[in-house]
Design a binder for these strands. Structure first.
Length: 269
DNA sequence: CGAAACTCCTGAGCGC
DNA sequence: TGCGCTCAGGAGTTTC
């Protein structure tokens, strides 16, 4: 469900409730997420104040004095701040109990998400090898150099977190459309100039999605329960057979790297 | 090393 | 209305 704009929308939604707030405990109703929720999480975070709520790629980091809680929403996860008396519903697997009678509640039907603890976020294996943030530090030159000699499809390349952090299926498709690049094209055979276009396209599509509060396909909700409004702005994703917004030709759907790729065969080369 | 396949899980949508 | 099938926003792990 959540891609980078949705995760950032979530971060912005929960930050005002969490920053400076004391954690009083953890209630784990279902520890079987992608990896087991560590049994010592409660002892790590209880009575700690949240110093910052950060995002790296699609990971959320809740910083406390001696480490961070790592939260990943997987395909179907969402976070909300609720009053402690609100009963958990199905798939509400975990609460971070906060002072003032509130809870940060994780819901994740598919359980592809994760809640972990790390004493050193910068050195954690999930975070240490991530590429630059697409909206902070990514350059065309980085994409160009990282792609030399690579034969894999550019869309697959773009979705590799070690190349660029946090580009998921929706925004990979949308950015490649804006840049006019065929998603199947080998990454290593794309020019520096076209990677410059791609970097601009990534900035544009992610910024637009962020402004709209993310993309709601099935049931994404921001931390305050509001939906994202970017779905109506999607140019090719999920639009197989519909008209290309640029040339009115049909949008095609093919499989690239085990995932659906949507593109216009006329505008994207 | 790189590339591609495989894996986890539940729900929505579709054809019949 | 119900059943069975396919597909889904992620990404680490395994295999070749």
């Amino acid at each position: 469900m959540p891609e980078l704009p949705e995760v950032e929308t979530t971060r912005r939604g929960i930050e005002p409730w969490l920053r400076g707030c004391r954690i009083t405990g953890v209630e784990v109703r279902e520890p079987r997420l992608r990896w087991p929720v560590p049994s010592d999480l409660g002892s790590r975070v209880s009575n700690q104040r949240v110093r910052a709520v950060r995002r790296r790629a699609k990971y959320l980091l809740l910083d406390v004095a001696h480490g961070s809680v790592i939260v990943h929403l997987g395909m179907s996860g969402s976070l909300r701040v609720v009053d402690a008396h609100v009963p958990p519903e199905k798939f509400d697997h975990l609460d971070l109990c906060l002072e003032h009678g509130r809870r940060l509640r994780l819901r994740d039907p598919r359980r592809f998400g994760a809640v972990l603890w790390t004493a050193e976020p910068d050195r954690h294996p999930l975070l240490a090898h991530l590429g630059p943030e697409p909206l902070d530090g990514l350059t065309a030159d980085h994409l160009y150099k990282a792609s030399r000699g690579r034969t894999r499809a550019v869309k697959d390349f773009l979705m590799d977190g070690r190349v660029v952090a946090g580009i998921g299926n929706i925004y990979a498709n949308e950015a490649l459309f804006l840049a006019g690049i065929d998603p199947r094209r080998p990454a290593g055979r794309i020019s520096r100039a076209r990677y410059a276009d791609l970097r601009v396209a990534l900035t544009r599509v992610l910024t637009q999605a962020l402004t709209a509060g993310g993309t709601t396909l099935r049931d994404f909700r921001a931390a305050d329960g509001s939906p994202g409004y970017f779905k109506q702005s999607l140019r090719v994703y999920g639009r197989k057979g519909l008209r290309c917004p640029r040339c009115a030709g049909p949008v095609r759907q093919v499989v690239v790297g085990q995932r659906s790729a949507f593109f216009c065969g006329r505008c994207q080369r």
